[in-house]
């Protein structure tokens, strides 16, 4: 049809003159004077971080990050490998203390209390701010003892019946109770990967933390186990504040209220998750979530 040929020529002309969708050239994405865009702070902050710098020896891994995690919020942290998101997460319960050359400066507060106060005991801090890791790491003990471990060492219970109750509620909240209630004394390491991760979550919530940090909790799991953990995150957010580091952008989009984008140790953007995934404010966020880094 001649009309089609005519139009194809027109189309070619049109395409030649196309511009970028967003008017953000890579050159405009200069990080030296970067200020975090979006809404990094919250009126209802559970944890409040300001001007956080982290150094590994001479190398600076985090540059002046300011961020709040709201009460009962699920905050996702995304970014390319090596952008500092896990480093930042680990600062939130002083997990980095175990690395000798790691130095953290700035203000990091949990409900107004400085968590880097030298007088502060990290053991109760880590009970208040629990952590779930990338690889499920149950203790080589029974399922029961895995969950009971925390309440025992923190002296949260005095009677066996109380401990039984904590173990049962924690496993129920972690969505694992029905699958393990008949074999509580079998080794935790005998469970499947997804079950082990939920066991670790049960172990974390057994000490009634206020904040749960999750460092890529699903990256070693299959899609069904992942879906169960994601479902669990939504339920847990009713009682806990959650910060999750994930490499899966779809996961961040599914589970979080706000999403923070890190790039080369800087916090580039924090916004409502819906906004980040439909119309982010910063060109670097846009480039990362649309898969344009390379």
């Amino acid at each position: 049809m001649e009309a089609i040929a005519e139009n194809t020529a027109k189309v070619d002309n049109m395409i030649d003159t196309k511009k970028d969708v967003q008017n953000n050239s890579p050159e405009s994405a200069d990080l030296s004077n970067l200020e975090t865009v979006g809404i990094p702070f919250s009126d209802n902050a559970k944890m409040s971080m300001r001007d956080v710098d982290v150094f590994y020896g001479d190398k600076q891994a985090i540059h002046g990050v300011g961020l709040d995690i709201g009460q009962n919020e699920v905050l996702a942290m995304i970014g390319p490998s090596g952008c500092g998101k896990s480093t930042f997460l680990r600062c939130l319960n002083r997990m980095n203390d175990t690395i000798d050359i790691c130095k953290v400066t700035g203000s990091l507060q949990l409900e107004g209390q400085d968590i880097y106060d030298p007088k502060l005991d990290v053991v109760p801090l880590r009970a208040r701010v629990g952590m779930v890791f990338q690889k499920p790491n149950p203790f080589p003990k029974s399922i029961y003892d895995n969950v009971a471990y925390g309440p025992r060492i923190h002296g949260l219970v005095s009677r066996r019946a109380e401990l039984d109750e904590i173990v049962e509620t924690s496993l129920q909240r972690a969505g694992l109770w029905n699958e393990v209630k008949d074999r509580l004394h079998a080794p935790g390491t005998g469970l499947s990967g997804g079950q082990q991760q939920r066991l670790c979550i049960a172990r974390t919530i057994a000490v009634s933390p206020e904040v749960i940090l999750m460092d890529e909790p699903c990256s070693a799991l299959d899609p069904i186990a992942t879906a169960k953990i994601e479902e669990l995150i939504a339920e847990l957010s009713e009682n806990f504040t959650i910060a999750i580091v994930t490499h899966s952008m779809q996961q961040a989009a599914r589970v979080s209220n706000r999403t923070a984008y890190f790039h080369l140790g800087k916090l580039v953007e924090v916004n409502e998750t819906e906004k980040v995934f439909t119309n982010p404010d910063h060109s670097l966020t846009e480039a990362y979530i649309t898969g344009r880094f390379g």
Binding site: T8, P26, G291, R292
Partner: peptide
């Protein structure tokens, strides 16, 4: 900072898919 190429996806096929959509739409529009 790193020199980034923000115009293109890492996946060339994805670029091609989106470019195809645009072209087809403009042809239909024509």
């Amino acid at each position: 900072m790193d020199k980034l190429n923000l115009d293109q996806h890492i996946s060339q096929q994805f670029n091609a898919d989106l470019e195809d959509l645009k072209t087809q739409l403009l042809e239909m529009g024509g």
